[in-house]
Nucleic acid binder design. Sequence first.
DNA 1: TATTGTTATACTCTATAACTATA
DNA 2: TATAGTTATAGAGTATAACAATA
Lengths: 146, 146
Amino acid sequence: MAILTNALDKLLGYQMRRATAVLMADFVRTLSDFDMRPAEVTTLLVIAENPDCSQSEVGEAIAIKRANMVPIIARLIERGLVARTRVDGRSLALRVTPKGAQQAAEAWKRIAVHEARFRDRLDPAALDTLLGALPVLRTAVDDPEG
Amino acid sequence: MAILTNALDKLLGYQMRRATAVLMADFVRTLSDFDMRPAEVTTLLVIAENPDCSQSEVGEAIAIKRANMVPIIARLIERGLVARTRVDGRSLALRVTPKGAQQAAEAWKRIAVHEARFRDRLDPAALDTLLGALPVLRTAVDDPEG
DNA sequence: TATTGTTATACTCTATAACTATA
DNA sequence: TATAGTTATAGAGTATAACAATA
């Protein structure tokens, strides 16, 4: 099969998309025997870090809309990883259970291995530049997420 | 609403994902009155650049699986942007139509504006580092997409 | 009036397995 | 046997609109 030229390779947006796809595929592989989806892991870790936060606050922190948080939280509760208590008539305080804390610790271990796989490919200066530049890119658009 | 801490912010993978989401949302906005989805634009541009390429070759070039190329190509043909001629019993040669070439030119214009919005946020050295590092990240995993 | 959580729904992209017809 | 294209289907993430209950 012939190899085609692809002028898109010069584009920042395209390269970001392609690289992120590889990163995400590896992350999913990292979680393959863990029975958690990426969005669930992210949610669990933020709740672990912020006891008694609300569902909306978590969504805000990780850029997932309220409506889409509902099934994620539902699954975490169903699996006994998160518990919630009512704060007032409309707010719920979220906390990880002991089992959830254990799951979060295991998630961090796996994330460390996954991360190293990619960080090790870059020299330290390039990695620093990258980690500095990525948050800047997010500010390029007004109200980037919602 | 309280602002939560988020240790994930330190992670390369997480930052890539967040930044790419903003990039992609802006790209979709860029295409909002253009009636083309990102995957369709990508496909059209690669075909324009590689006349008489096959469907599999395009998929290989842009990391979209054969099965998922089918509806993309179908829609491009349906809209009169791409034509195909049979090469042999199992291969099809793809070409953009004049209308497709015009659409591709317009897509490039829009991409340039979208790209500039993000490139302008970075100093030239950081941008170079980024564009150098992203393809390297893709090589961190064996057979990253296939 | 604004906010929190919820339901329902649709869209985009991705993944796999299995089939056909050809080479 | 391997390849090109196809079909069918499922999963994950995201988006919007609208609603109830509450602040």
